[in-house]
Amino acid sequence: MRSIVPILTVVSTLFVIWYAAAIGLNAPWAYNKAERAGVELNFAALVSDTWSQDKPKLPAPHQVGIEIWETTVEMVLDGRGFSKRSLIYHSWVTFSATALGFLLGTGLGIALAIGIVYNRTMDMSVMPWVIASQTIPILAIAPMIIVVLNAVGISGLLPKAMISMYLSFFPVVVGMVKGLRSPGPMQLDQMRTWSATPAQTFWRLRLPSSMPYLFTSLKIGMAASLVGAIVGELPTGAVAGLGARLLAGSYYGQTIQIWSALIMAATLAAVLVGLIGVLQRITLKRMGMA
């Protein structure tokens, strides 16, 4: 509870900067309008105009807040919570691609890490490719993945999830290789003195040892998954999802819509990463490691 004051201080400072920036950035358009209408703008009128434009360069926080309110809670109250104009619907679309991509990426990442730790050939050969895969800009490869998968008849959720997976498996591989290798020579020797099988060593020593590393990787992987899902929605023709909202907003200069989609994406990421944090705390607590 003691952290509430510093947090509020930072947040309110951000809001002050945001409001001030909104005045500065939207002022030219306000002056322009006033000049054409032939009126003189005093400061109060300038402020009220810059904070309430239809297509501001930078919408004021309350404009974004109202937009989010109108496209979520109000639509739910109207019984249209899942209509195509609802941010809840778009968030759900993005979330499902994120979640699937995250699961696939985590699975792939763990599988590759096990391969790298247990197989010398994979150790020597796979890691460079894993690193190389992340040097390719995702924006460049995302349309290719969509096009190729579409050509073989796969469309909808899976192509987006594949892009999510592409981004999220990387931190899991790196973290899990480190985690599975974290038991020291003494602990491995100890297993040997008990004639433990490789499977017993894995389940009873390597995997539990890697848990702290796994959760750290999962948090990064989850955030990367969300970015992947949003990027994956851009080349699909802006049908649905937060990425589609961003793209549609930028087509029509709907900055308020862009910002509300951005805020929703950030909130979604915070919630998902927070959930992993809770899972981490419960798991490590039950393991006596927290």
Partner: peptide, 23 residues
């Protein structure tokens, strides 16, 4: 070994049980 090398995620009982489980 020189260090106790007990697994932090197992209780004392669980640690002693470990070789028994393996065997």
């Amino acid at each position: 070994f020189q260090a106790a090398g007990l697994y932090p995620w197992r209780t004392i009982g669980g640690n002693i049980r470990l070789p028994l489980e393996i065997m």
